[in-house]
């Protein structure tokens, strides 16, 4: 009984985090992006500086009619948002935020592979949406999504593999246990590759070619309205949370901090995640969208060689110190 309660409690907490953090990131994006453009952003909803804007958006989305295009592949069209969103929920279960046993939803032995595998499944949602919408813009969006995923999955995996080599384990808490501060300069290239590839996998600007609104409306999500559309958006922001959390855990030392590692480890994790989420927003505001050929070129000619070089460096240092 106690075990069941424990599991239920963990799931509830993970679910709460899953529902709250993406909204926090979304609201931060509203405000940060506005101020970076000399605007104020939402100011009304909720009274104080529009803090409840996303709640209001959610209510609005829930009220909208759920439309499925007549020519669409109904079942797949309706299933796609869930396929896009649920993997991030699963990933969140495995991300440790503190050193203690209670600070992670579930310890997964092959943690890195688990999170990367499940994140890859999320993209299937976009592909399903793109294909099932019976819309040429959606189809183009789906194609671009697939091409982007194929290009960026590899550098992401290689960068993650570098950390796994350094730590000698593929379990996320295990990596954090092995973390030393000098891993930061050692793995910095891998960290950059991982973060950039992750951004591309989430289709965040400047890698938002699959949803380029000036060319293909909203890519795979063009035909979606109401709650299903909101689920896709939620998936994007959940993806940001997951990506930032993962980068924190893999490259920035998670709960390790200059001080207070015992009780306040989770604060360090959250802080680093928040800073990374800010960087995600910052990059979105600062850079224009990459063209499709630039996207592919960046992945195949820059990120993959860099990731391979990082692995070589990791191997050399690992052999040298052991």
């Amino acid at each position: 009984m106690n075990d069941v309660l424990d599991v239920a409690l963990r799931l509830v907490i993970v679910f709460a985090v899953f529902m709250v953090l993406p909204l926090v990131v979304g609201q931060t994006e509203h405000k940060v992006m506005a101020h970076m453009q000399g605007r104020l952003g939402p100011m009304y909803a909720g009274g104080f500086h529009g803090w409840a804007q996303l709640v209001a958006d959610g209510v609005k989305f829930a009220q909208k009619e759920d439309i499925v295009p007549a020519e669409a592949d109904r079942r797949i069209f309706q299933l796609a948002p869930a396929v896009a969103l649920l993997p991030y929920l699963l990933v969140l279960v495995a991300i440790p935020i503190g050193p203690s046993e209670g600070a992670v939803g579930q310890v997964v032995d092959a943690g890195i592979f688990f999170v990367l595998a499940v994140m890859g499944v999320g993209v299937l949602g976009s592909l399903m949406a793109g294909w099932a919408s019976a819309n040429k813009f959606s189809l183009l969006g789906g194609l671009r999504t697939a091409a982007q995923l194929l290009a960026y999955e590899l550098p992401m995996l290689l960068a993650a593999a570098s950390v796994a080599m350094a730590a000698g384990t593929v379990s996320l808490p295990g990596i954090l246990d092995a973390f030393e501060w000098w891993w930061l300069p050692w793995q910095i290239v891998g960290a950059l590759v991982f973060f950039v590839a992750g951004l591309a996998e989430l289709q965040r600007p400047p890698f938002d070619m699959p949803v380029a609104d000036s060319e293909i409306i909203f890519g795979a999500y063009t035909e979606y309205t109401g709650l299903r559309f909101a689920l896709f958006l939620l998936a994007e922001y959940a993806g940001i949370v997951v990506l930032c959390g993962l980068t924190t855990v893999l490259f920035l030392g998670g709960w390790h901090g200059p001080f207070g590692a015992d009780g306040l480890g989770w604060v360090w994790t959250l802080l680093k995640t928040a800073v990374l989420a800010f960087v995600v927003i910052w990059l979105r505001v600062s850079y224009p969208r990459l063209r499709e050929d630039q996207l592919q070129k960046l992945a195949w000619t820059t990120l993959i060689p860099l990731a391979l070089a990082q692995i070589a460096l990791t191997g050399i240092v690992k052999v040298a110190i052991s």
Binding site: H35, M36, Q37, G38, R39, L40, V285, S286
Partner: peptide
């Protein structure tokens, strides 16, 4: 963008 963020908005 960072500099703009620290300045007063024009809204």
């Amino acid at each position: 963008t960072l500099r703009t963020m620290t300045r007063k908005t024009v809204t």
